[in-house]
Design a protein around this nucleic acid. Sequence first.
DNA 1: CGATAAATTGACATCACTCAACACCGGTGG
DNA 2: CCACCGGTGTTGAGTGATGTCAATTTATCG
Lengths: 252, 252
Amino acid sequence: MGLAAAAGTILEQHPFVTRLLQHVDLDPADLRSLEAIIDGELSIRRRGELIVDGDEFRKLCFVRDGYAVRYKLLRNGKRQILNVILPGDIVGVPGSFYERAIYSVSAITDIAMSACALDAYVQLCYRRPQFGLALSWIAIQEAATYAEHIIDVGRRTPIERLSHFLLELHARLRVVGRVEAKSFTLPFSQEVMADVLGMSVPHLNRMMQRLRSEKLIAGSERRVEFIDVGAMQALAHYQPYELVPIPPPARV
Amino acid sequence: MGLAAAAGTILEQHPFVTRLLQHVDLDPADLRSLEAIIDGELSIRRRGELIVDGDEFRKLCFVRDGYAVRYKLLRNGKRQILNVILPGDIVGVPGSFYERAIYSVSAITDIAMSACALDAYVQLCYRRPQFGLALSWIAIQEAATYAEHIIDVGRRTPIERLSHFLLELHARLRVVGRVEAKSFTLPFSQEVMADVLGMSVPHLNRMMQRLRSEKLIAGSERRVEFIDVGAMQALAHYQPYELVPIPPPARV
DNA sequence: CGATAAATTGACATCACTCAACACCGGTGG
DNA sequence: CCACCGGTGTTGAGTGATGTCAATTTATCG
C-alpha cells in the first residue's frame, strides 16, 4: 500500500472531479478546499484487497485510475459482486459509514486513488454544503445502480442481464472517457462478470457466445463492439437515466 | 390524493424524525426549519400509485404511516420489487433525483405522508448542512439495503432469501416501533414477497412452509414468530449492521 | 518456454418455473 | 341469510433452463 506525498495538483484531471462537476458547479475555492483534505495517494496492486469485510475503515478514496470490485463472500464460498468500481468512483461507500465495513473491495487491476478521512469530508460539508449534497447525489446514483442490478439478477434472464451489464458498463466508462463510441475494452474476466450477474462461468460464457452469434456484439477476447445498440437495449430493457443537477443556492 | 392543510405539529412523533435522530442531533430550531418546508400531508389509498415510472416527480415524501413498494415492470410482464417502503422511509429516493422517475411506487395499504419539494429540501441543506449529511446517510443506508438485496437474489438460495427478508423486515420495523420482540405482522402478501425476492409465488409458498416445518418460524397467515433467531440468522447469512453517527461540526 | 490464469466445451442432474386447479376468507348485494 | 366474487394462499405434475463438475484449449506472464 504505497502512500505518496500529496503534490500540488492532485485534482487536476481527476475523474472524480469530472463526475462532481456533472452534478454541481464548483469554483476554484471549492476545489482547493477539497484538495486540502486529501491526505495522500494510495496505490494498490492487482488482486490486492482495499477493504476487507469486517474492517474498521473510515476513509473515502476517489479512484483516479484502475478497476476494482465490491463484493461479499458467503459461507458456502459463493461470491456476489455488488458493483464494479471504475475511475471516478468512491471506495468507502457504503463501507466507511458503518461501524465495520460490510463488504470487501478488491483490485482487479493496479489502482490509484486519492484518499481522505471520512470525518474531514464531513467537516468540509459543514463549511461548504454543496459537498454534502454532492455526496447525496452520488449515493443516490449508487443506489439507483444497485436497484438496476437487483432487477438484473431478480427478473432479467441471463442473456438480458449480460446485455444490460455491457450497456451500463459502456455508459459509465464513457463519463470518464474510457471508451470509444460503440466499443470498449472489458476490464473484467468472465469469472468476475459471472459473480456480478449471479450466474455460473460456463453459462456466462455461453451467453457471451450467443450475443456474438446473434450479431449483437462483435469482438473477441476482452473487446466488445456493439453492432446493433438498439436491439441490444431492447433485449436488455436498458434505459439511460439522467440525474437532475443539484439546484444552486437561491439568491438571498 | 388528499392534501390536508399543514397543522402546527406535523413532525410530532413522525417516524421520519425518529430515524433522523438516530443519525444526527437536531435541535428544535432545526426541526422547525424542516417543518417549514413541508407543504402538506398526502394520503393515498391501498393500491394507489404514488409514482409511475416515467413521471416527472420532484418531491420528497416522508412516510408517516402505511406500506408501499418501489418496483419496476418489465415488458414481459414481470415485476421486480426493489424495496418495501415502511413508515419513516422517503418516497422519492431515488426517483425525484432523475429527470423522470425511474421506478414506480404503489401503496400496499392506505398510506399517509408529509411532502416537500425537492428544491426546498436542497435549499434547507444550504442553510443547515446537517440535512444534506442526513440525506447522504439515508441514501447510503438505502444503497446498503439494496446491496443486501442483490446478494439475496444473486447468490442466496430461495430459503435463505426468504429468511433474510423476514429478519431484515423485522429489524427495519423495529426501528419505528412496529414489531414485538420476536414476532411481527407481515404487511405483505406472498405475491409481493415473491416479487421482492425474484421467485414465483408457488415456490415462495413452499419455502414458507418449509421454514415452519423446520421449526424456524411459527404463526400462520400474516403472522411471523421467530422460534430460533440464531439458526435463522445463520441460515440467512444475516448480519445486523450499524451506521456510524454523523460526526458533529468541529468546534472552531 | 514453462507455469498460471482464463476461456471454452460437454454430459448430466436438479431446482425452480409454468400452468393449472382448488381451498379459503371476508365483503357485498340480492 | 345465502350466493357470489375477488383476492389470497395452497397443492400437484411436468419440463426446461441453469448449475455442477470435469476435461481441454487458449492466452498471459514471468
